[in-house]
């Protein structure tokens, strides 16, 4: 089934890449340049999943996750962090803020799709 997935990243190239991959798998994609823009976009609509970068200007991915979790309609949707850091304490931070999972950059197209398939079962 077609799902709507939001990708949040301040790097346009990265957004484009993720967007291309997800669209190729038949999903609808919504893009945001940082956490604040994502929150703004999600004020009037909902999505099935959020994939967000961690380090971004204005509002980072962890804060975005926390803010989303505070809202009723985003309490249960999968939120995946895109991170370059695999250190345990970084993972702990993600978990503490309410993220569902993580993907380590750089990643392969298949890895991204695997995560999506896992958290958004048809």
């Amino acid at each position: 089934m077609r799902k709507t997935i939001m990708t949040v990243d301040d790097a346009a190239t990265m957004r484009r890449m993720i967007s291309f991959t997800l669209k190729g798998a038949g999903h609808e994609v919504l893009e945001a340049g940082d956490g604040a823009e994502a929150l703004e976009l999600l004020r009037n609509r909902t999505v099935d999943m959020v994939i967000t970068d961690v380090n971004m200007p204005r509002m980072d991915g962890l804060t975005l996750t926390r803010e989303l979790r505070a809202l009723q309609q985003f309490r249960r949707i999968p939120i995946i962090l895109l991170t370059t850091e695999s250190a345990p304490e970084k993972k702990a931070e993600g978990r503490a803020n309410g993220a569902t999972g993580w993907i380590i950059k750089p990643f392969q197209q298949e890895q991204l799709l695997a995560v999506v398939a896992k958290v958004l079962p048809v």
């Binding site: 509002m59 980072d60 962890l62 804060t63 926390r66 995946i80 345990p88 304490e89 993972k91 702990a92 931070e93 993600g94 978990r95 503490a96 993220a99 569902t100 999972g101 993580w102 993907i103 380590i104 990643f107 392969q108 890895q111 695997a114 995560v115 896992k118 958290v119």
Partner: peptide
């Protein structure tokens, strides 16, 4: 290259308050 927190053994990651520079948004 990826994982889900619910599948992680929880013992591995005691929830510590993250360092101020990062966690304090």
């Amino acid at each position: 290259g990826w994982g889900l927190f619910e599948e992680e053994p929880s013992a591995e990651s005691p929830v510590t308050p993250p360092p101020a520079t990062v966690a304090k948004a």
